[in-house]
């Protein structure tokens, strides 16, 4: 992370230091310019000695650090890259997804009714998925509010109203963040086995999941796209969570440079994952019959044969294909047709 900050440093070097006309220059300017110039040398000395040649009576984080030049790089990263970049990326992906949905997915037919159903996700798995999804969306929305609020919402709401929302967002984000990590770990424990590489995954990739070529593809419980999504969510989600903990608990004595790097990882990961999840929501809505697996738990037999042929064959061989009546009796009185018909 630090290396990334270092590498991006030249990008920010072109900042103008011209002073506005009519302003008196602070007499300390020369002094602090000199302090800044000598900061790396001082830090090296500090790291070499055990007690360090830099001392202060005031106890606290970074109190012996006279200047933190890295703060400006972090500020420019947030303002030049992160805020406009995330607006363009997430806005672009959202627009693309809506456009694709209206242009293509809306016309796709639902799977042919066979009167038979397969249990795809158990109650625990569905609960876990929606628990994590709700936390993710909440954290994403509250995070974006803090990121975009000043340019987008303050002009509309005014500072006091936005401050109330932002304060609630910050507290909610901080309280729910660690819970998301718990849900992520439980999710990983439940699903990792089904997301390992299987024969046929690369054939699926080569044919872009069946968009190209003809004939059946060998797809197990999850296809490669879903597996990539899983590992992205788990690994990037873990990075976001750990970086978030670094930001959330400043009371372990980590310095500002560490927190700036953690913020970089946290935000880059979050924007990436939000874009990926927008794609995930699109796929769940676009491929008809998919969402039922995560809402009611059961999927149409023909859907399973078409999209997860190997899994459907295994389930059928094990004799676990149910009729609509059996599914209904398992669920009590609720009508499957109503639930599955959306």
């Amino acid at each position: 992370m630090l290396a990334l900050l270092w590498l991006t440093a030249p990008l920010f070097a072109a900042v103008s230091h011209d002073k506005p006309p009519g302003l008196v220059e602070n007499p300390g300017t020369d002094l602090w310019r000199e302090v800044r110039r000598r900061a790396p040398e001082l830090q090296a000395l500090q790291q070499a000695g055990k007690r360090g040649p830099v001392r202060t009576q005031v106890q606290g984080v970074d109190t012996t650090r006279l200047i933190n030049a890295r703060g400006e790089q972090w500020r420019l990263y947030r303002h030049r890259w992160l805020i406009p970049g995330s607006l363009w990326l997430l806005g672009g992906v959202a627009a693309l997804v809506v456009l694709l949905y209206l242009a293509v997915a809306l016309r796709l037919p639902p799977p042919r009714e066979s009167g038979r159903r397969l249990l795809r996700f158990e109650t625990y798995e569905r609960t876990l998925h929606w628990f994590m999804a709700a936390l993710f969306l909440f954290l994403g929305l509250t995070g974006l509010l803090l990121l975009w609020g000043r340019p987008l919402l303050i002009p509309l709401l005014g500072k006091p109203a936005f401050s109330a929302i932002a304060s609630a967002s910050k507290e909610g984000h901080n309280l729910m963040g660690p819970v998301f990590l718990v849900s992520l770990l439980l999710f990983f424990a439940r699903f990792w086995r089904r997301n390992l590489y299987q024969r046929g995954d690369f054939a699926w990739l080569a044919r872009l999941g069946g968009l190209l070529g003809r004939g059946p593809l060998r797809v197990g419980f999850f296809n490669l796209g879903e597996k990539v999504l899983f590992w992205l969510v788990v690994l990037v989600g873990l990075a976001i969570s750990l970086a978030g903990l670094v930001l959330l608990f400043p009371n372990f004595g980590q310095g500002r440079v560490v927190m700036e790097a953690a913020h970089l990882v946290h935000t880059l990961g979050a924007v990436l994952l939000l874009a990926v999840v927008l794609g995930h929501i699109y796929m769940a809505k676009a491929v008809k019959g998919t969402l039922e697996g995560m809402t009611g738990g059961y999927v149409e037999y023909n859907w399973a044969r078409e999209h997860h042929g190997a899994w459907a064959a295994d389930t059928e061989a094990a004799g676990r294909v149910l009729s609509v009546e059996e599914v209904e009796s398992r669920r009590g009185q609720r009508s499957l047709v109503k639930e599955g018909g959306t």
């Binding site: 602090w32 800044r36 606290g60 970074d62 109190t63 650090r65 006279l66 200047i67 933190n68 030049a69 703060g71 400006e72 972090w74 500020r75 947030r78 803090l146 910050k170 507290e171 901080n174 309280l175 930001l247 959330l248 608990f249 400043p250 009371n251 500002r256 927190m259 700036e260 913020h263």
Partner: peptide
């Protein structure tokens, strides 16, 4: 939120113990 503390070169912004955790 602590952002001013990250951006300030002098370490001026301080935070009392309050808020979540």
């Amino acid at each position: 939120c602590g952002y001013c503390f990250y951006a300030c070169p002098f370490g001026a912004p301080q935070f009392p113990e309050d808020g979540a955790f």
